[in-house]
Each structure stands twice: as C-alpha cells, then as structure tokens.
Amino acid sequence: MKITILTVLLFFGQLVYAQDHPENHDHHRNHVGFGLGATSIFAENNLAPGLHVHYSYRLSDHSPFSLGVGYEAILDKHTHSTVTGLLGYELGRILISAGPGVTFGKEDGETHRSLSGHLELAYEFSVGDFHLGPMAGFGFDREESHASVGVHVGFGF
C-alpha cells in the first residue's frame, strides 16, 4: 500500500510540473490505449495484475473531449472484467477518462454482473504516434472497489 501511495504522489507531482512546462502534444481524432499495472482490491486486501484497453474518439480536431469504450480485467483468483462507456478530457498531456460500466465477475463457478464506475488518469509522453506514461485508475461497483497504478501505452491515428 505504501508503494501505491508513493506512486500516486509522484504521478500527481509530475502533473503539477507539466502545467508549468507545456510541450507540443499531437492531437489525434482516434486513440487506442493499453494499461498494465498492479491493482489493489480493497475488500480482499491484496494486489493483482490489471489490464485496461480503451478506444476513444475526439469530438473535433481541437476539442479536449472524447467519447469511447473501455475494457478492464483484474486477473486474481476470481476473474473480474468491466466494460465501460467513457467520457474523456485532455488537459495538455493529462488524460482523464471516466464513465459508467458493467462488471462481470466469476466466483465459485457462478457468474454475476453489476453496474460500476471507472476513473482513470494518465500522463502521456509522445514518441511519434505512440504515447507512453504513468496511469492511475479507480473502479467501483456495489460489491467492491479497487485502485490501480501502472503504465499506459497508446497509439493515435
């Protein structure tokens, strides 16, 4: 948990620094992103690998807003996966995505689903059409909540 807190603090420190040092950032209408990280499931008090994939479409060439869809999987002893509708906002190199979703879980051979929510923050460095950087996410449904930190890799076109 201490590593998670330290990572989040370093992430937000970078965000503050980025506001004082703007750089050119490519704006693409379409974005496909992948995230891989460590996920803390609060109710189970453990860490598990997490994977996030999303597609977003910028509303206009210069709009900071985008719409998209995301998929998240938490790979622990019971598989959790979530499909989310996303509203995105870009603030310089900072991407903020949030939206409602449906979480599917499997426990003791039984599949269940519930409404959920997801929030993700990412900071991107551009390398051509690719974007790389740290990410932090939070997800919740009526049964549990979780937070994750990791690396975001994206591709704009």
Rank of each mutant, 00 (worst) to 15 (best):
M1L: 05
I3S: 08
I3T: 06
T4Q: 13
I5C: 02
V8G: 04
L9R: 09
L9F: 14
L9Q: 12
L10F: 14
L10I: 11
F11K: 00
F11W: 02
G13Y: 09
Q14H: 10
Q14G: 14
L15G: 12
V16Q: 12
D20H: 06
D20Q: 06
E23C: 01
N24D: 12
H25S: 13
H25Q: 14
H27I: 04
H27G: 05
H28Q: 08
H28I: 03
H31K: 05
V32Y: 07
V32E: 09
G35H: 05
L36V: 15
A38Q: 05
A38F: 00
T39M: 09
I41C: 00
I41P: 00
F42G: 01
A43G: 04
L47T: 15
L47H: 11
A48K: 13
P49K: 03
L51M: 14
L51F: 13
H52K: 09
H52M: 11
V53D: 10
V53T: 13
Y55F: 15
Y55V: 15
Y55T: 15
S56P: 10
Y57W: 15
Y57R: 15
S60F: 11
S60L: 07
D61E: 11
P64F: 07
P64A: 05
F65T: 03
S66Y: 05
V69S: 11
V69A: 14
Y71F: 15
E72A: 13
E72H: 12
E72K: 11
A73W: 02
A73K: 06
A73S: 03
I74T: 09
I74H: 06
T79E: 14
H80V: 02
H80T: 02
S81K: 06
T82R: 12
G85Y: 14
L87D: 09
L87Q: 09
G88D: 14
Y89D: 06
E90N: 06
L91G: 04
R93S: 09
R93D: 08
R93A: 06
I94N: 08
I94P: 00
I96G: 00
A98D: 12
P100R: 08
T103W: 03
G105R: 10
E107W: 07
E107F: 09
D108H: 08
E110P: 00
T111E: 07
H112I: 13
H112Y: 12
H112D: 13
R113N: 15
R113K: 15
S116M: 00
L119I: 08
E120W: 10
E120P: 12
Y123S: 09
Y123V: 05
Y123M: 05
E124F: 03
S126P: 11
V127C: 02
D129Q: 10
D129R: 13
F130R: 04
F130V: 06
H131R: 07
H131Y: 05
L132N: 00
P134V: 01
M135Y: 01
M135R: 04
A136P: 06
F138P: 04
F140N: 07
R142G: 14
A147L: 08
A147Q: 10
S148L: 12
V149N: 13
G150W: 03
V151L: 05
G154A: 06
G154L: 01
G154C: 02
F155R: 03
F155M: 04
F155T: 03
G156V: 02
F157T: 08
F157V: 11
